[in-house]
């Protein structure tokens, strides 16, 4: 850092953000409209509701479920969800005996088109470091205690392949429609750190 007189305290990251925006805008290197479009897309248009719609369809349409597990990307695109960080999505199914949980140990890769931007716990070094070493302990700390006979499969997103978990449909929801199921399905269940609870 340069010391140019005045306060020795480095400017906050918020101020540096404002500074970078000014510098790039002044020189015509960024378009404020493009900036707004990116923010709007990831703050309001794209989020875990997309993934919940995919899961609810899979729970209520056996043919869709089969196709989703065979070709995640194409089946997800059928519902209108695609784009950056979702070029190739693989969907894996959680069952009473197998539990998948997703991480990116190298950065925080995450299937944006179906889940939006990752939550803070997913980006946390403790999660990134530990879930590939002691997943059962980590899941318990996060509130999910699995039986000893459940096989855990950790999916480390080290390439451009993105992983989406198809959670188990909870008991007691047999009579619910696809639309009624959607609000039950949480982001955390689609990453594999929670189960979908019976309403």
């Amino acid at each position: 850092m340069t010391t140019t007189g005045g306060s020795e305290r480095s400017p906050s990251v918020a101020l540096r953000t404002e500074a970078l925006e000014q510098l790039l805008t002044e020189r015509g290197l960024i378009d404020p409209k493009a900036m707004d479009a990116i923010i709007t897309r990831y703050e309001t248009s794209v989020g875990p509701l997309n993934g919940a719609k995919v899961v609810a369809r899979a729970w209520t349409d056996p043919d869709y479920r089969r196709r989703l597990l065979e070709d995640g990307t194409a089946s997800i695109k059928e519902l209108g969800f695609s784009g950056q960080q979702g070029e190739h999505i693989v969907v894996v199914e959680n069952t009473p005996t197998t539990h998948n949980v997703v991480v990116c140990t190298l950065c925080s890769c995450y299937p944006w088109p179906v889940l939006g931007l990752p939550p803070s716990w997913y980006k946390d070094p403790a999660y990134r470091a530990r879930v590939v070493r002691e997943p059962r302990t980590v899941l318990a700390e996060m509130g999910l205690t699995l039986d000893d006979d459940v096989q855990i499969i950790v999916r480390d997103s080290t390439s451009e392949v993105r992983w989406l978990v198809l959670p188990e449909r909870p008991p007691g929801t047999e009579r619910l429609t696809e639309e009624e199921l959607v609000p039950l399905i949480t982001r955390d269940a689609m990453v594999g750190v929670a189960k979908v609870a019976t309403p």
Partner: peptide, 30 residues
């Protein structure tokens, strides 16, 4: 992956905003 010393994980919060602070919106797009 597998490194030590990071402490406990942070359990998920309900209804966590995409951007917790205002500057984060712009930092992401920038």
């Amino acid at each position: 992956g597998g490194t030590h010393g990071w402490g406990p994980v942070h359990p998920p919060q309900r209804d966590e905003p995409v951007f917790a602070e205002d500057w984060q919106r712009k930092a992401f797009a920038l």
